[in-house]
Simulated scan of single mutants.
Amino acid sequence: MLCLVSIIFKLLTLRGSLAAFITGALTFYSFEWQGLVILAIFFLTSSILTKWKREVKIDYNAEPLEDKKGRTAGQVFANGGTSTLAAIAAIFMSDPVWLIVFAGALATATADTWASEIGILSKTKPFHLKEWRKVEAGLSGAVSGLGTIAAVIGAAAIGVSYYLLYDTSTFMVSIIIIFAGFFGNIADTLFGAWFEQKLYCQICKTETESKWHCKMKTVRIFGLPWVTNNLVNFSSTIIGALIAGGLYIWTVK
């Protein structure tokens, strides 16, 4: 039902909805309804924030065809692929660590999405970690105070949800999930700064991540052409998942 509603309200494309259904089904099978609630918290909050003040964000990103029909299957798996792999692993290997890995991956995805969607609205220009200067809002690899606060709150939303939903949860494990989510988001920023391709608009002389800007194709100025935002997001969720799982094994088990 949620997938159908997502298509109607253009939160997901048809293929994106199918990908979300697969992710949800595996999550429910491995981590029961509580896992599905955690997944829903990530998806619903991220979708709402993406739509929030969209007209302002379009001015920054300026790619008119982007996301008109909702998130694609690639975007769904980029953010939820690692948590899906954790759910699959839990089917074959019964170990509570997979639930922590699942939560760590989603805490990273939530922190990154909140940081991006809220941070872009900061009144001050963000600071790019590679270029070591202030840049226009919307570029990967740039951080702002507002975006950093949003990342912490986003990771906390997953960590607190885990604590409230599972009877076996502890305060320490929730802290681990929040920590993993925040530093997974940091990894996303670093990957975006050093490896993700950056493009340049020859009309308004602006750096962007969009293939189109000012109704013209942009040109690549640095970064690897095959390192897309989806790949960066997927890689960062793996980092967040590994941090969560590693800290859980080290401190709790």
Rank of each mutant, 00 (worst) to 15 (best):
L26E: 00
T82R: 05
I186T: 03
A150T: 03
F182L: 13
Y248D: 03
A89T: 10
W212V: 15
I118N: 05
V152Q: 03
A107V: 03
I91V: 14
I88C: 02
R220A: 13
F31G: 00
F222R: 14
G141L: 02
F179G: 01
A107E: 05
I221F: 14
R220M: 11
H128R: 01
S122A: 15
I249F: 14
W33S: 13
E117C: 05
T45E: 05
T50E: 02
V76W: 04
S17T: 02
G138R: 10
G145T: 12
R15P: 07
T113F: 07
A155T: 07
I203D: 10
S6K: 00
L39I: 13
N79C: 11
K10D: 03
F191S: 00
Q75M: 10
A62G: 15
T237Q: 07
I149N: 00
A62C: 13
K211C: 13
V152E: 01
L2E: 10
W52M: 12
L2A: 12
N61I: 13
I186S: 00
S140L: 03
K125V: 01
C204W: 07
Q34E: 14
K125N: 14
G104W: 04
L85A: 13
E117Y: 08
K198T: 08
F222S: 11
A20V: 03
N185V: 06
K69M: 12
A78V: 03
A87L: 09
G74T: 11
T218C: 09
G145M: 13
F31V: 08
V101G: 05
I243L: 13
Y200S: 08
L65Y: 10
Q75I: 08
E66T: 14
A137N: 15
I22C: 11
G81M: 06
I118E: 05
G24D: 05
L121V: 09
Y163R: 11
G81N: 07
L199P: 07
K217T: 12
N61H: 15
K69P: 01
Y200T: 08
W194S: 00
L44K: 04
L2T: 10
D188S: 07
S169N: 01
N229P: 03
L12H: 06
G154D: 02
A89S: 12
L11I: 14
A103M: 08
T170H: 00
S210N: 10
G245Y: 06
L44V: 15
I238T: 06
R15H: 10
N233F: 05
S94K: 15
A19L: 04
